[in-house]
Amino acid sequence: MNLAIEHVTKKYGNHHAIDDISCEFSNGVYGILGANGSGKTTLMRMLATVTTPTAGIIRVNGKNILSLGDDYRDMIGYLPQHIGLYKNFTADKFLHYIAALKGLSKKEAALKIEELLDLVNLMDVRKKKVGTFSGGMKQRIGIAQALLNDPKILIVDEPTAGLDPKERIRFRNLLSSISGERIVLLSTHIVSDIEFIAKEVLILKNGRLLHKRNPQELLHEIAGKVWLVTTAESEIPRYQDMFKVGNIVRSESRVELRIISDDRPSLAAILTTPNLEDLYLYFFEEDFDAGPVKV
């Protein structure tokens, strides 16, 4: 399975939501990292064919997905960012409906739904109306519907929003376990979602693709730029003014700041191993800080 994005651009009026992106995917999990408005959702929507590129082509195994049409849609599973459900449908009925849309036979659908309801832990509420579901439950039924047709390409847009930590870990492991024989594209702005399962991480910013590399390589890029500084509480604003400050850990009377900087921020600073969160901060620091940042 090979999915290729070739010079794809998407314009809304004059605004470039996606600006000339090219990349390729093979089986495995890909994490798409970006702040709000970076074009993640637009890219995912184009991959799910619910919207079409203004320019450029997306190909699967060399064929244009738009000319493949229904055949391409048969290969994909799509979980949109904001899912709408029929409030009056039961979980069971909803999944049967999606199964019918995906062209599963009644028998196949019944078996698959049984399996998936168990997987997303909704077995005991299968006869309840989805209108009564909590956010996390809705998300889980969304995940189940995406997997109904055993998709060769799974496109999930911020799938962990609304899930509690336990569900989140479960979902992460689930994706990792099924990614062997398919392409999984996962967009998120929560770094820990993809930290350990992504084969490659794509970093999107203002509609452009900044990086597409394996996490270790990316981390290597900022090696030697992440520091730990232990200082007094009152010093925090000064550091925030001068550097990109990540985690702040408080202990008794002191605080430990995680700082991303090319130079040693203070004499007492200790180098530490970077993680993906630092990487995110490195690229998207404007969106992280509440206060003004002077660099």
Binding site: L119, P165, K166, I169, R170, N173, L174, S177, I178
Partner: peptide, 13 residues
């Protein structure tokens, strides 16, 4: 598909 062990998770959490 491998399901994570709930008990392990709980302990971990």
């Amino acid at each position: 598909m491998i399901k994570p062990n709930d008990q392990e998770l709980e302990e971990w959490l």
